[in-house]
Design a protein around this nucleic acid. Structure first.
Lengths: 207, 207
DNA sequence: TTCGCAGTACTAGACAGTACCGTACTCTTA
DNA sequence: TAAGAGTACGGTACTGTCTAGTACTGCGAA
């Protein structure tokens, strides 16, 4: 990546933001470069100066976004790992987890990446590795510590982390994916699903 | 639907088959009607005689496919519901379930429908209702019977069915969705995931 | 003056959908 | 059996539209 002037970097941000909107709405093939330039309040020349072509723009966007995935569980995971009330601890973990994942922006990106995984398999893998691939081990570390402290019994903490994710997210995530709308799951339902998932997880893994 | 001659019905099948291939490969926008006609060994005229336009073809395809989803669990569910060894019963159920869902054709359709759920939300819903929406209650009925017989303890069998699905499918399904290739999960891994999921389910729900 | 960019016009190609022609099959009538 | 009418279809060419990417012009800031 060559050095960019502050001005150019700003334009770049605008373009990426506009591209995100366009790709989310219409997919890779359906997105329109004229539209991207217009939404970014930038000329096409500027777009093509920063990104060689549509594909490069798309790839840069996915990488950029997946880099943004800050791991919000590093801190929470550490806290929860030292809690004494295991029911409350898992419930807290689950709430934070579901709250972070069942977000419009995350779900939309998820749908976009899945949609284009046939065209760009490497991007799907990259997004996975940088997204879930970073969060799950954090979760697992937390579960491992709780196991160490005798509050849980997990044979393989990473598997347990995946099971927690599956119990919590399978229903609402599928609903959002297939129905194409975030409001396919109401906050009340989400809370119910979460509670049911927590109970099942505790039943399976509480020491 | 007007009556079709045997001849026309055959053409229709050829077209749908070709369309399936094209849409799976390139998505809705990327699929090419010339290509569809060519693959079906049919003229464009014939395509447009049977289907008003690209959108109608796509909709017909999705409905057709989701109608084909025969419920293979009606029988197996009944058998398993009367089994005496609960570990073996759940394991059997899980194997059949995973075997039926983690299939190239099912996974590809799933990816296609999710990819186009933004453009055709009603189709996503339809596919869901006719696919999982039919299989899950069957599973739930089976779990309910096992609960009745004192082998499991499920508060809400439908929730339990969803939990079983989440435990079994979350990992491999995500892998396939994001990596865009079926071979993102080897049969060995799939067997491991299934076994781990069964154990977690039994730990949570065994009476 | 020079550089970067907005605005716009342009090029080349792709593709949905239509039109038309010639052929082959089917069904009717004698 | 034969002829003729109607119909489905393959093949192909065509139209209109859309869009990725390029080129050019003029303007405003350093």
């Amino acid at each position: 990546m060559p050095e960019l002037t502050a001005r150019a970097a700003l334009k770049r941000e605008q373009i990426l933001e506009a591209a995100l909107e366009a790709f989310l709405e219409n997919g890779y093939v359906g997105a329109n470069m004229d539209q991207v330039a217009a939404t970014a309040s930038v000329s096409k020349q500027t777009v093509y100066k920063q990104f060689a072509d549509k594909e490069h723009l798309f790839r840069a966007l996915i990488v950029e976004i997946s880099d943004r995935v800050e791991d919000p569980f590093a801190e929470i995971g550490r806290e929860v790992a030292e809690a004494d009330d295991i029911d409350q601890a898992v419930r807290r973990l689950a709430d934070e987890f579901v709250g972070a994942i069942m977000t419009p922006s995350v779900q939309q990106m998820r749908r976009l990446v899945i949609a284009e995984a046939g065209r760009f398999p490497d991007l799907g893998q990259e997004y996975w590795n940088r997204g879930f691939g970073r969060v799950l081990p954090t979760l697992a570390t937390c579960l491992a510590r709780l196991t160490e402290r005798g509050l849980l019994k997990t044979k393989d903490p990473l598997v347990a982390a995946n099971h927690l994710a599956g119990l919590l997210l399978w229903i609402p995530s599928n609903r959002v994916m297939f129905f194409g709308r975030m409001d396919a799951v109401t906050p009340d339902e989400l809370a119910e699903f979460t509670e049911a998932g927590v109970e099942a997880f505790l039943a399976a893994y509480k020491a």
